[in-house]
Design a protein around this nucleic acid. Structure first.
Lengths: 251, 251
DNA sequence: ATGAGTAATAGTCACGTCGACCATTACTCA
DNA sequence: TGAGTAATGGTCGACGTGACTATTACTCAT
């Protein structure tokens, strides 16, 4: 094939290529049920290998930017959104990941706000998909998404990350719906409520959400893990640095 | 300086260099107290930059090996030991990590068996240090070790990893000493015992350790997380794959 | 206005986990 | 043979959590 620029022995001599990719999660509300579902944007490959297949947004590392900046850049390039949460996922470097070259991908994962904006951003080569039921993607990107999903669910279950899917003010029921959508289970409202009220990182406001056909729920807001350095117990980040957007990590 | 081969504009044009490094932990018994302490091996840099300083073992990625294989290789090259546990830590890629070039390091961390062998392996350019109280190292390696320590302690507290420091048979008190050494706290023997006996991944043997000046303790052995796929809850690895040496990871 | 419908909110109860703590056992050594 | 030591066994109370019931405060249809 014409695009194959390196044969095996040439490949031995070249240094591995380095790319940054990002798994971007957002919630979209199902128009029928109104329940949130997990979606992510993919880009269509316009060159070989895997031309025409869908792939994670990504690209090379520019010389002036940190790894995290590169991930944030290809996030906003493809979605037009600002990441609410961005964290390194894993470095994938199997010998045969890419047919034409030795390729090492450092993958980040992100949460973004659901927004109408990304509708506008969809195009011939950028499309959003439901996080479950993904068709076969380019390279090993299905495995990468699976791992990102695993990590998201893990962080969701043990860390305090769900709020990054939500806006400034939210009801406890909205938080519960996020958990239910991501973890795929049903939670008892009363118990979940008790759990959240014990959490140190959200605070009640004096506002209530009007408009429902029931008792109006109180609105809460997220207050980072301020106060005591509670060192997110199961987080995947260095000492007390939960590594939100452009913070800490990446020395 | 003579070694500085790239000026700023040249640097812009070159792709980032990729290196693999490994933080290797082992326990050594203090000759006085008999208690285990956490040690790690470093190598002395024999070229610029940071010539003469101590650094994590590492090197470039060979074209035929996976990331994990590369980490395992520079582990056995420097210590002569076989890793009991090996897992990716993080990819460090800050813009100014290395003075002479843009350098991205994918760092692994490992646990190895305490052994007399590593004494023999020490040399002018390889030496073991106590994991606390490390002198300033080359590059950002102090930060990397700090992060590795954080991760080790986290995994120790939530995962089942302590056994990889120990041999085939061990007493519950030895496990407790590992926890105490790594986490830096004291644990109640009776409660810790109850905790471990509930754990599914160790099994009692019919052997007892003789020689102490007290009731002989029963010996136990580690049985991977076999049986039901208990999916280590807080592990940092893909679905149900706790990623021991050369397993799973690295697609 | 009035009752049905709905979800938010409050509270109770049983159970399992965990830290603190005490008691007993089985070794060695002087 | 008794002292010393750590392994082992057990109890108690505080606390977190799932299951479950009750009450409150809205909207909407009649």
């Amino acid at each position: 094939m014409a695009f194959s620029s390196a044969n095996v022995s040439e490949r031995e001599l070249q240094p591995p290529s380095l790319a940054i990719s990002t798994v971007i999660f957002a919630l979209r509300h199902d128009p029928d049920s109104g329940r949130p579902e997990l979606w992510l944007p993919l880009v269509r490959r316009i060159r070989q290998p895997h031309r025409g297949k869908w792939a994670l947004p990504g690209g090379p590392l520019e010389s002036h930017e940190s790894l995290q900046d590169a991930a944030g850049r290809n996030l906003s390039d493809t979605t037009g959104l600002v990441p609410r949460y961005l964290e390194q996922l894993y470095a994938f470097g199997g010998v045969d990941r890419a047919a034409t070259q030795r390729l090492v991908s450092i993958v980040y994962w992100a949460l973004v706000q659901p927004d109408e904006a990304h509708h506008a951003r969809e195009s011939e080569n950028v499309r959003w998909f439901r996080a479950d039921s993904l068709e076969p993607m380019a390279f090993d990107h299905n495995e990468i998404v699976d791992y990102a999903l695993w990590r998201l669910r893990n962080k969701m279950a043990y860390g305090s990350i769900a709020y990054h899917f939500l806006g400034e003010r939210f009801t406890l029921a909205q938080v519960r719906e996020v958990y239910e959508a991501v973890l795929g289970l049903e939670l008892d409202p009363a118990n979940f409520r008790r759990h959240l009220r014990a959490a140190p990182d959200i605070a009640a406001t004096e506002e209530f959400q009007q408009g429902g056909r029931h008792r109006p729920p109180r609105l809460y807001r997220y207050i980072g893990s301020q106060a005591s350095a509670t060192a997110e117990t199961t987080a995947d980040s260095p000492a007390g640095t939960p590594a939100p957007v452009n913070t800490g990590r990446n020395p």
